[in-house]
Design a protein around this nucleic acid. Sequence first.
DNA 1: CGCATAGTTGACTACGCTCAACCCTGGTGG
DNA 2: CCACCAGGGTTGAGCGTAGTCAACTATGCG
Lengths: 206, 206
Amino acid sequence: MVMDFLTIVDLPPELRQAVTHYSLTAGQTLFQEGEVASAFFVVETGRIRLMRYTAEGRTVIFQSVEPGAGLAEVALISDQYSCTAIAEVDSSVIAYPKSNLIAALRQYPTLTESFIAMLIRSNEAMRTHLELRDIRAAHERVLQYLRHLVRLNNRRIIQFDRPMKDVAAELGLAPETFSRALSRLEQEGRITRLSGEIWVNESSAA
Amino acid sequence: MVMDFLTIVDLPPELRQAVTHYSLTAGQTLFQEGEVASAFFVVETGRIRLMRYTAEGRTVIFQSVEPGAGLAEVALISDQYSCTAIAEVDSSVIAYPKSNLIAALRQYPTLTESFIAMLIRSNEAMRTHLELRDIRAAHERVLQYLRHLVRLNNRRIIQFDRPMKDVAAELGLAPETFSRALSRLEQEGRITRLSGEIWVNESSAA
DNA sequence: CGCATAGTTGACTACGCTCAACCCTGGTGG
DNA sequence: CCACCAGGGTTGAGCGTAGTCAACTATGCG
């Protein structure tokens, strides 16, 4: 499950004073690839999409960052953002100015530990994402993704709070293919759909 | 480029005493997914492949870890390895026992900083990998990968020290498709091949 | 009651995978 | 020195499946 960390960890006072809150409306850009990286962010509410543009203009979605997770860790070791961050829905984020955060990390071991833990979790999430992409058959990829969500939330019922086409994009599928994959899974009895909700019928092994 | 960090950082004496060196022959397993995670590793020489097995038995290669980079960071926050690590070629690794490493991180801020930097770099590498996978056309994916290598090594000439089929697998392509992609790129004049070496002819604009 | 948008379904296309044959190299042994 | 073999790499043919374009439906909102 998504764990909060810097949002609820007791921040040292000098860092708490330095942070800034941003409110973003759906579609608004937080930062662009290549811009000077001045801060590290944590999502409070909403959802922030990390993406890059390929040479041919396609967009690549790395992940959708949920509340409690961080983004732009790269600010700490580089002076440029390595991807673009856009709010998928109305969102709010906390900005930790680079220099203040580094100073605080030097001083507060507890803060450092939760920061490291967050990095490692983010790493694992990316691995899972990559694993999904290696499943070629669309319906199997979708099923694996649903199983993943089931594990995360500990409930067999999944309800998406965003358009299916966004979910499709996150899985690297065209909306049509995603739709067909769901239909097929339903026909095969592996999932059940009912007014926007999705049951996963299989045992959630692996 | 791949940066050494824990290998060359001056290790605190108590940590240096706790580390173990392992030598692996090609194909040997370092650890398996699900095993009790007792250590974090850094590759000294050779190359370690991180992979998972999907439900259908397919293998997913997350990345090939090069000398100087770390693996199994998850040991620090979990008690199970989340993937399997196998030596692609004869390799040697340094093992940092979990508890000793955590203790050392608590005590030595410099060590902590290079550790954090490594995590962030690893994160970025994964992003790049994911970005590649989103390029559908095989020849474009290959070209992007070659450009990436050019940037990393700062030389337009690429020479692989492993079978092409392994490279193909890392890109998520069948060996035949990879071969055809290279042929096509060569015909289009975007690369030049000469006895195992590959020139990238384009300007290396990101 | 339209209008816009998301989701679904159908038809067609394109491209990567699979299987198979062939080539080329390096190593081995006569 | 050549014959043979094994493995990786290349090339060819056919298939399957995801993408694309298009039409249709359903839903929500003015």
